[in-house]
Design a protein around this nucleic acid. Structure first.
Lengths: 130, 130
DNA sequence: AAGCAAACGATAATTATTACTGTTTTAAAG
DNA sequence: CTTTAAAACAGTAATAATTATCGTTTGCTT
């Protein structure tokens, strides 16, 4: 949870980009988009900053499938949906079950920090294609 | 969700192993343990069968961190806990919120098949060490 | 028993991510 | 303002997990 020590142009550009989209991009997609603004940014820099930002809680790290890690610029508690067919990750438009987290925290003597809730199924786009 | 076409000794050994433990092993750990019974089994065979078994619903594929996929031989709906420090995955001893899944299914017009609920925090072992 | 495709073992290839190295940038002190 | 020290960087090499390929073996149907 420790914050980065020094300011960096690249890091803030990454945060700005993540705050500008609801698409839950992968590191690779973040890289492609940041390159439009900072053409010579390194992929390693993107990975390093995404990890730092997730570790200090400024962004969310989403591990929905075994394939790619996705990132979310919005850190308020909310549920996600991942399409089993195309792998797309989106927000669920429903209340977050805070009671569930509290119940678990009581059970485990407050060793629990968070909960990840990921619904899976077939998104409307894939449903219409198949 | 399509089942494998032919019986295989190797595949059944993998299922048996996963049913014998509550430790949610990675593919590598499954491989090491199956080798004790079938010494010349290939790592590729383990991966192929774990994927098949997960795809047809005989086992669960758990994607809790971005690092390793874990597998679970018990497919009844239940919540998991992953330690942020050691990465260990375990079952949560609490009721599964079936109502949450049903609510989401209604919201998304039954395009939802399942939900993964993973609590994160520091396990008792890591807590006592730090 | 014969034939065909599924599954296999062995290994090569791919993909995502992290580590390394010399350079640049940030921030604080002189 | 310089100077300085460490953080962060770009570029690239290395690693780790997983998947693909290919010739052989096995399970199942005829």
């Amino acid at each position: 949870m420790s914050a980065p020590v020094k300011y960096s142009h690249q890091r803030e550009a990454i945060v700005d980009y993540l705050k500008s989209t609801k698409s839950h991009p992968t590191a690779e997609v973040v890289y492609e988009n940041i390159r439009l603004i900072i053409p010579n940014i390194s992929l390693g820099t993107v990975y390093r900053n995404l990890n730092q930002l997730a570790d200090c809680g400024r962004i969310l790290r989403l591990c929905c499938d075994g394939k790619n890690v996705h990132y979310d610029g919005f850190t308020h508690p909310h549920c996600h949906f991942m399409c089993e067919s195309c792998g797309n990750v989106s927000d669920m438009d429903m209340d977050f079950p805070t009671d569930l987290l509290n119940k678990a925290k009581r059970l485990k003597d407050n060793n629990i920090n968070n909960v990840s809730i990921v619904f899976t199924g077939i998104c409307n786009t894939c449903k219409s294609i198949e």
